[in-house]
């Protein structure tokens, strides 16, 4: 059964509740939302939207949802495990030190093992990544390996894939606005790196992004930038991110 991945997660939004309409979704969908951190640890837009996706989906009949967050050191590491569940059975928290900024990569072999175990337990139909920070872009591949049935969705929150300067598309050190990335342009911002490495970075990231079925761009502007960089426009859906529900804000904020 081929599910409409975006429909499964967001769906048409009903005017009265602000929540997706249950009718628009296939029954029995198992959703795993992955994010680089947890709103209990920090209050950035991506983690709030991710958690809200999880919370709203979990509230829907016929949907089972799980939340997987990185940045677990904000909670506290436990010796010998990199995935723990301090917030209950539906939420996983990952701790790892190996994450590598330049390739947005997590070379830690333990992460493959433990994220793989989560994927085999959860058996998701959809894995919705709200970020790859902390978990690494290899995580898309792990979904293919350990949950081959799952659709992989990635919401693009900023330009980290395109721009090594914190994804901000501003030059270094002058902070001028930048429109396109290229090995030469990026090499000027990071003279300590050979320009060819930026070429390789793109090969590397494109290789893992090819594992993603659907990209969600929160704006047309962002979509255009990613298409110019090399993403397949047919795979990109423009959908605005959820703003946090008042209720969710309270839930997360009070708990944090």
């Amino acid at each position: 059964m081929k599910k409409s991945a975006t429909g499964a997660v967001h769906g048409p939004v009903a005017a009265d509740t602000g929540l997706p309409e249950p009718a628009a979704r296939s029954p029995g969908v198992r959703l795993l939302v992955v994010c680089h951190t947890h709103p209990r640890f920090s209050r950035g837009g991506a983690e709030i939207t991710a958690y809200e996706t999880f919370r709203r989906a979990a509230a829907q009949p016929g949907v089972e949802a799980w939340f997987f967050a990185s940045n677990g050191k904000a909670h506290g590491a436990k010796i010998g495990v990199s995935v723990q569940q301090p917030f209950g059975p539906r939420e996983f928290v990952h701790t790892g030190e190996a994450y590598e900024q330049f390739k947005l990569s997590n070379p830690d072999p333990a992460f493959e093992r433990e994220f793989g175990r989560v994927l085999r337990e959860v058996r998701p139909d959809v894995v919705h990544f709200h970020h790859y920070l902390g978990v690494g872009v290899e995580a898309f591949l792990y979904v293919r390996r350990h949950a081959p049935q799952a659709q992989v969705i990635l919401t693009l929150h900023e330009y980290l894939i395109i721009c090594n300067h914190h994804g901000q598309m501003v030059t270094r050190p002058n902070l001028d606005l930048c429109k396109t990335a290229s090995p030469q342009r990026c090499g000027r911002c990071f003279p300590e790196q050979a320009p060819q490495l930026f070429f390789l970075r793109r090969l590397w990231l494109q290789r893992f992004l090819r594992e993603v079925d659907t990209f969600i761009a929160p704006s047309n502007f962002l979509k255009e930038r990613y298409v110019a960089w090399g993403l397949d426009p047919a795979k990109i859906v423009v959908l605005e991110n959820f703003l946090p529900h008042e209720q969710a804000r309270t839930a997360c904020g009070d708990a944090a």
Binding site: P107, D108, P109, E112, R113, E138
Partner: peptide, 11 residues
């Protein structure tokens, strides 16, 4: 170390 990691990741 890299080889070990590559095998775990890319199989």
């Amino acid at each position: 170390r890299l080889a070990e990691s590559c095998w775990a990741r890319f199989r």
